[in-house]
């Protein structure tokens, strides 16, 4: 109820997250009164978000845990249930289905599973949802491109202009004898699609 209660509970939740080494979830306190935090987690494996680390802004309401925390993605995510503009999240447990027994950790894990199983029929970003429903393969490519561009897991070790591009594709295309700069722009335009990039370079 009071601020003490909130900070106590948040402290415990942070400890909970710290102790759990299996989940990739992390929590960081942004301001002193435990009401503004930052959560992050790795993109789920086997999805286009695999190589990314996603940062979520968490705002704790005064009557937490009786009201859900306010969360939004700070990282740009290409996902039907996440606004590509604002990072707003469409997840039932952050709205009507919240119960006080949920914790920040469980919510972050839920977000992670939301990345695994999008629900295009209840979209936050209609355009992305349409893309998802119409061309799943292309959607995956775009989502992966966004992931490597905006949510790189580790700092990119290559040259700055290669951020978000597949190293192997660049190497392959360069071996083909194309100009490196045009290779980069072609890959960027085709979102890392090697064949499309070749087409573009030839055409």
């Amino acid at each position: 109820m009071a601020a003490i209660q909130i900070s106590k509970r948040i402290t415990k939740e942070i400890k909970d997250v710290l102790k759990d080494k299996e989940s990739t979830v992390e929590l960081k306190i942004i301001d002193d009164n435990f009401q503004h935090l930052e959560g992050s987690f790795d993109g789920p494996e086997g999805t286009p978000y695999e190589d990314g680390r996603f940062v979520v802004d968490i705002e704790i309401p005064n009557n937490y845990p009786f009201k859900p925390p306010k969360m939004k993605f700070l990282t740009m995510v290409y996902h039907p249930n996440i606004s590509s503009q604002t990072g707003a999240i469409c997840l039932d447990i952050l709205k009507d289905n919240w119960t006080p027994t949920y914790t920040l950790k469980t919510v972050l894990i839920s977000l992670r599973s939301l990345l695994t199983t999008p629900e295009p029929n209840d979209p936050q970003d209609a355009q992305v949802a349409r893309h998802y429903l119409s061309d799943r393969k292309d959607f995956d490519r775009t989502a992966h491109y966004w992931t490597v561009t905006y949510a790189p897991k580790k700092t990119f070790d290559g040259p700055a202009d290669e951020i978000g591009l597949d190293k192997n594709s660049i190497a392959t295309l360069c071996e083909m004898g194309f100009d490196r700069i045009s290779v980069l722009s072609a890959l960027r335009a085709t979102q890392n699609d090697l064949e499309a990039a070749v087409q573009k370079l030839i055409g």
Partner: peptide, 16 residues
């Protein structure tokens, strides 16, 4: 906690 949850949402906090 139980009373507060029930007055706020009229559900069991564990099983809704």
């Amino acid at each position: 906690c139980m009373r507060k949850t029930i007055t706020e949402m009229n559900i069991c906090p564990m099983c809704r």
